[in-house]
């Protein structure tokens, strides 16, 4: 386990014990990353910051449920951030469309993240390898759904294909990932 990942796991354990300083450590280590995750889905700064606040309040309440054996701490935090942003989106709608040029950014980017020290490299590499085994349409659709938080009908509209085609791409892609990742 990397030093950064260990520090983050330790801080989450501290939060589970009610340690406010540990929460600040988690915030310091991860707020930029989680903000990046949220603002991709809700590209309005003020709204994204409100969601970020919600996320750390959830972390304060749920830290006891983090299980390091099931995944990396940053993945757990990113999942909370992403789900909170998606819930906000489903509840209040997409008020601002992400700029159209965001599409290429999420396409097949295998660049290592800047804060590599936080990451669970094994999981990231396994997923990247399995995504590469999918067809381009399947891979791009799944990436677009993940990064921008698009639903099936939004994806179909964005990529300009029939809804059934989009569902087919995503389901086939997920089935491929399931096999490749050993689900």
């Amino acid at each position: 386990m990397s030093e950064g990942r260990e520090a983050l796991s330790g801080a989450i354990a501290g939060v589970a014990g009610g340690d406010r300083a540990a929460l600040k450590t988690v915030y310091r280590l991860t707020s930029a990353k989680l903000f990046g995750t949220i603002i991709r889905i809700v590209p309005e700064r003020e709204r994204a910051e409100d969601i970020l606040q919600d996320v750390y309040v959830k972390v304060w309440r749920r830290a006891g449920r983090f299980d390091g054996s099931k995944g990396s701490p940053i993945t757990w935090l990113c999942t909370i951030a992403r789900n909170t942003a998606l819930n906000e989106l489903r509840r209040d709608g997409r008020k601002v469309e992400p700029p159209a040029d965001t599409l290429p950014e999420v396409e097949d980017s295998d660049a290592l993240p800047a804060d590599e020290w936080l990451c669970a490299m094994e999981e990231s590499q396994a997923l990247a390898r399995c995504l590469q085994e999918l067809s381009g349409d399947q891979r791009r659709s799944i990436r677009l759904a993940f990064f921008e938080g698009y639903s099936y009908s939004e994806l179909a509209k964005k990529v300009d294909v029939p809804l059934g085609t989009m569902k087919s791409w995503v389901r086939r892609g997920l089935a491929g990932l399931k096999g490749c990742l050993g689900g």
Binding site: L52, W76, C78, A114, L174, L181
Partner: peptide, 17 residues
């Protein structure tokens, strides 16, 4: 799925709140 797909999120950018 959240854990597996979540690994993708590590390639997302960051921002300064």
């Amino acid at each position: 799925w959240e854990t597996r797909l979540g690994a993708m999120g590590e390639a997302a950018g960051s921002g300064v709140p």
